[in-house]
Amino acid sequence: MILLQNSILRLEYNPATDILQVRYPDLQRYHLSEIRHSLQIMVETIRNYDVRKLMLDARTTSIEIEEEENRQLTLELAGMLSKTRLTKVARVQPSDPEKESRAQRNIEAARKAGILNYEVGTFTTPEEALIWLKA
């Protein structure tokens, strides 16, 4: 069932598997405050529905912000997610190796900051991600 759909995010939840599927938003500087607000809504939805598993699909995400802004956004999101009862987050990686490399550096920064209290897995397809989340 679709819990939220706006110009930035679409939250699709399957109560049978307790998996929330989200297409990670395009990161554009002029929409950054709206993106942050939508990510806060996503976290509130995770909290309200007591979601335990999240799939973030970043295959088509465009990144038009500086690397430091991107890292800060990742750390903010990781911190907000750590205050929920999530146990697993599956990322479907972008096909661009540079974008994926940047994402992995950001995840490592969140790990070093000690704010990841859930498992994070990275996959090339949504099907692989869903198999891992259901296991």
Rank of each mutant, 00 (worst) to 15 (best):
I2H: 02
L3K: 12
L4Q: 07
L4P: 02
L4W: 02
Q5F: 01
Q5A: 09
N6S: 12
N6F: 12
N6W: 11
S7E: 12
S7T: 10
I8Q: 02
I8T: 08
L9Q: 06
L9H: 01
R10M: 04
L11W: 06
L11I: 11
E12D: 15
E12M: 14
N14D: 15
N14S: 10
P15A: 09
A16L: 10
T17I: 01
T17F: 07
D18M: 05
L20G: 05
L20T: 05
R23P: 04
R23L: 09
P25Y: 07
L27V: 06
R29M: 10
S33A: 01
S33M: 05
S33K: 07
I35Q: 06
R36M: 08
R36H: 13
S38R: 11
Q40R: 03
I41T: 02
I41P: 00
I46C: 08
D50T: 13
V51I: 15
V51M: 07
R52P: 00
R52N: 01
R52Q: 10
K53S: 12
K53W: 00
L54P: 07
M55G: 02
D57H: 00
T60P: 02
T60D: 03
I63P: 01
I63H: 05
E64L: 07
E66M: 09
E67D: 03
E67S: 10
E68W: 03
E69F: 00
N70W: 01
N70M: 11
L73V: 01
L75T: 04
L77Y: 00
M80W: 13
L81E: 01
T84E: 02
L86Q: 04
T87M: 06
A90D: 07
R91I: 03
R91Y: 13
R91N: 08
V92F: 05
P94A: 06
S95E: 13
P97C: 06
K99C: 02
E100M: 08
E100S: 11
S101T: 10
A103R: 06
R105K: 15
E108Q: 14
A109G: 12
K112H: 15
A113K: 14
A113N: 13
I115M: 14
L116S: 00
N117V: 14
Y118A: 13
G121I: 03
G121Q: 05
P126A: 14
E127Y: 13
L130V: 12
K134Q: 15
K134I: 04
K134T: 14
